[in-house]
Simulated scan of single mutants.
Amino acid sequence: MRGASLALELARLPVAQLCFERRLNPAAIPDVYANFTRPHPRYKVFGNKAMGAALIDLSRFDNPAAYLHSVRQHGRAGHQSRKAAARGYRLRRIDRNEHLDEIHAIHVSSPERQGRPMDDSYLMRRSSYPSEPHCECHGVFDAGGRLAAYCNIALYGNFVATDQLMGYKNNDGIMYLLLSSIICSLIEARQVNWFMYDTWFGARQGLRQFKQYVGFQPYRARYRLV
């Protein structure tokens, strides 16, 4: 019964047409496209990132204020972002290689995330991060100037996706401030139509609620590489 219910829910999802453009990084983009479209590890008939992609349709919003209005309710991204800003948190674009110790401190600040142990790859301090032309990183800093959260995003074509996202676990609203600020900047730039944060149905309930409160919805994604 659960399987039939999920199949019906998937069949009713709206469809998003997502385009990968290899010109943005010819060495990396085809590999990411192959990963997104390979068979799902559990449901082989579906593509890996095809059913239930967590997306925001940025083209729905005339301006950043319209997006913030859509998530204005108490507890959602608009409210939480204002709370974080009132506590002195600020966002700016960063080079991860200039914040290696701070990023490592974030990674090891909690032994688990979403009820799962931290992957070993996060527990080892990185000596450097690659500089890729289709990626950029944004960081949230507290009132004392300490990096509290960061998000590396990748431009693939007509959509941007989160590549790495993590912060200190607190109730200050920093993750909402981080993502909502990125979304506002994408809406203002008018260069892409979609923002993606992995998938919807593979996420645990807490993470799924977080995505919902930021404005993400599940879609059936159809990909092409040009």
Rank of each mutant, 00 (worst) to 15 (best):
R38G: 02
R38I: 11
H40Y: 14
P41N: 05
P41R: 13
P41M: 11
P41A: 12
Y43H: 12
Y43R: 10
V45N: 08
F46H: 15
G47T: 09
K49D: 04
K49M: 15
A50Q: 15
M51F: 10
M51C: 07
G52Q: 08
A54K: 09
L55E: 05
L55S: 05
I56T: 00
I56D: 02
I56A: 03
D57H: 14
L58M: 04
S59V: 09
S59H: 13
F61C: 02
F61V: 00
D62G: 15
D62T: 04
N63W: 04
N63L: 01
P64N: 14
P64M: 11
A65K: 15
A65N: 12
A66H: 08
Y67I: 00
Y67R: 01
Y67C: 03
Y67H: 03
L68C: 01
H69N: 07
S70K: 06
R72I: 03
R72M: 02
R72T: 04
Q73G: 00
Q73E: 12
H74S: 08
A77R: 04
G78L: 08
Q80L: 12
Q80I: 05
S81W: 06
R82G: 02
R82H: 05
K83I: 08
A85T: 09
A85G: 00
R87S: 09
R87W: 14
R87L: 15
R90G: 03
R90Y: 04
L91I: 12
L91E: 09
R93H: 01
R93V: 08
D95N: 15
R96H: 06
N97G: 02
N97S: 02
N97W: 07
E98M: 05
E98W: 00
H99T: 00
D101T: 10
D101Q: 12
E102I: 08
I103P: 01
I103E: 06
I103K: 05
I103C: 02
H104Y: 07
A105Y: 13
A105K: 11
A105D: 15
I106V: 13
H107D: 13
V108D: 11
V108N: 04
S109A: 15
S109H: 13
S110P: 01
S110W: 15
S110D: 12
P111V: 11
E112K: 07
R113E: 07
Q114Y: 14
G115Q: 05
R116V: 11
P117C: 08
P117W: 11
M118P: 00
D119L: 08
D120E: 14
D120R: 11
D120C: 02
D120W: 07
S121P: 00
S121M: 07
Y122E: 06
Y122D: 04
L123C: 01
M124W: 09
M124G: 00
R125E: 09
R125C: 03
R126G: 01
R126F: 01
R126I: 03
S127A: 12
S128R: 14
S128A: 14
Y129D: 06
Y129L: 04
Y129K: 00
P130H: 11
P130M: 06
S131P: 03
S131N: 05
P133K: 02
P133T: 02
H134M: 04
H134S: 08
E136T: 14
E136Q: 11
E136I: 09
